[in-house]
Design a protein around this nucleic acid. Structure first.
Lengths: 343, 343
DNA sequence: AACACATAGGTTAGCGTTAACAGAAAAGGG
DNA sequence: CCCTTTTCTGTTAACGCTAACCTATGTGTT
């Protein structure tokens, strides 16, 4: 046995191995790999064959080192367990893949701006080329404002004004449509169960609701505040169930609407007979609530894709979108809202 | 102005810059960064100061190139929009972070084994040190069996036997508990609405259900088949709503149970008065269904953490867990299931 | 035939880090 | 006080790739 064969360590093949096998220089291998011109079809074939034979994989670290590009994008998210963030993440990942990028995720442990900066830094240390922040909290937006990052950052899902480019739903418009719809049904006014404090979505939806009421000259009741969970919707529902004033409730999301529906049911209030309920999001389950929930649909996947599109533009140095990208939601009519009852 | 100042290009500082500023060699900087011994406190301080002053960040690609470690783990997931996968991903990410790893995700576009291999390869090309596959489909497990990967792979969530280490819920036990519970309530038999075809979870839950029935000497009705969605639960519900034989239904997940509940309600069948329903998963909303759903709880976050733990062990070369790690679910009693009615 | 010029390829030099070795300074032992 | 050992630090060489430059060959033009 020659000295070569002593260690049976199976070293991963490198470019030089491929080159030797194909009888070319490593540079030619590189050229084939990167589709560079000036490679004769014959040699290209030989190189490709050698690559296949050795099952050679380029070393991404080496490539990243010299090109200064990691082919990786970062996503920072708050609670990727929620339907919205999860769908956005999914949309982003799919879009990134088609653009031939990897995506690395970092979830926030808390909402303060230090935490956001930390997550972005973490991603940056890993060498991501850009990051999209799924952080709909007001505090996060504040964090973005003072965020210092050498890599492009775009935000998604929130609506605040900020220095970073942003794509979001027009939550205000969605809330207006929902409220308007209820008003048009003949309700004297519409109550509101807001989302978690500190979220842009909560603020904007509440805003849209209030404005619509004011524009219609309707009384603006005090809004309840939930935390997006069904439980909080349920608790709010128990509080209002016996209030005869309440004939229509606009919930800031479908999960809370579910809890509300439950509380109303327990209290023996008919929906939409006595009280109309409308949600926001159109989660896949909303159509199967009892009664099926009228709600405002958001296409989170689309939002994720658009965010990535925007980030890619930033990466290409195409001047950053002056105005935030806004996607209009559409309201989905089902059975949980109906005309005001006459008393 | 000296020739130095001509280009105002702000090059990211590198280790050599820090070294020069601190008046040491780059190696000493490296030592400080990596906590190597034999660095005098004084010089360490100077180096640290220089690092702060320049806001120096080590280049991860360079480090990865020489250490052959990317500090990155990969996660392949199928539909990270679903509650289960999303929660697991979240659990994995959090656990990875505490272990000081980054996580890169790749979602599958389809379920075939080529797709799984492709995703793992993609991650591998990126240089991940290990991957956890959230792919509960039978086909995915098959894919894992023939998966060739130089990096450790663990699977999570499914239950099949396979070459790769795996952590999963004991779906069979959960299904047995659910079925047993219904039987103990006095139901002569229990019907079953299975999950999507091809999923390990579907198979195992159906298995547990059937065995329990057989062990109890109960008749084993033909099981329905859904696709995990509420819609499929609804459709199944419409089919069985008027079957007087049906007094208890065990649904393979909560979403389908929701659809079923809806269909039953529309058909005027009382739950649990006439028909008892039990779900699986205990999604956060289950407690607010009408009626609140009795179900089998799975802690997906925990599952994700355990999977990561297992992967970390693999990375440390600690012999791979002979037996799959099994986590027992616990059943949560609520109001959708009750005693059989007497006729 | 001489030249330009495109094409096909090889050679060399980094990218920014850690590893391996080597040398200098400080500390201990006779 | 010299020699050995321990601390501290610097030098050199990878890691595996791409960029930049260079050297051959053709191919077409004057």
């Amino acid at each position: 046995m020659g000295a070569e064969a002593v260690g049976t360590e199976v070293r991963q093949p490198v470019m030089a191995d491929v080159a030797k096998l194909a009888g070319v220089s490593h540079q030619t291998v590189s050229r084939v790999l990167n589709g560079a011109p000036h490679v004769r079809p014959g040699t290209r074939e030989r190189v490709l064959a050698a690559i296949r034979e050795l099952d050679y994989r380029p070393n991404s670290a080496a490539r990243a080192l010299v090109t200064r590009r990691s082919q990786t994008l970062g996503v920072v998210t708050f609670d990727s367990t929620l339907y919205g963030p999860a769908s956005m993440l999914d949309g982003i990942e799919r879009a990134a893949r088609t653009a031939d990028y990897f995506v690395s995720v970092a979830s926030l442990r808390s909402l303060d701006s230090r935490s956001v900066q930390e997550a972005v830094d973490r991603l940056r240390d890993q060498g991501v080329e850009g990051v999209v922040v799924i952080a709909p909290q007001v505090s996060a937006v504040g964090a973005l404002a003072k965020l210092s990052s050498p890599v492009p950052v775009v935000a998604v899902g929130s609506g605040g004004r900020s220095r970073v480019p942003m794509v979001s739903f027009d939550n205000r418009a969605g809330a207006e449509a929902a409220t308007r719809y209820l008003l048009d049904l003949g309700h004297r006014t519409v109550h509101h169960l807001a989302g978690a404090t500190g979220w842009m979505e909560s603020r904007d939806r509440q805003d849209g609701w209030r404005r619509t009421l004011e524009a219609a000259g309707a009384r603006v009741p005090r809004a309840g505040t939930g935390d997006w969970s069904s439980r909080s919707g349920y608790e709010a529902g128990r509080r209002i169930a016996h209030d005869p004033e309440v004939t229509a409730v606009f919930c800031a999301n479908d999960h809370m609407a579910l809890g509300l529906l439950r509380a109303l049911y327990e209290a023996g209030r008919a929906v939409p007979g006595e009280i109309s309920v409308i949600g926001f999001d159109d989660i896949p389950e909303a159509a199967y609530f009892t009664p099926p929930l009228t709600t405002v649909r958001q296409d989170f996947g689309e939002l994720g894709r658009r965010a990535l599109e925007l980030l890619l533009k930033e990466l290409d140095g195409v001047g950053h979108g002056r105005d935030p990208v806004r996607i209009s939601p559409e309201t989905v009519l089902r059975r949980s809202a109906g005309p005001a009852h006459r008393d």
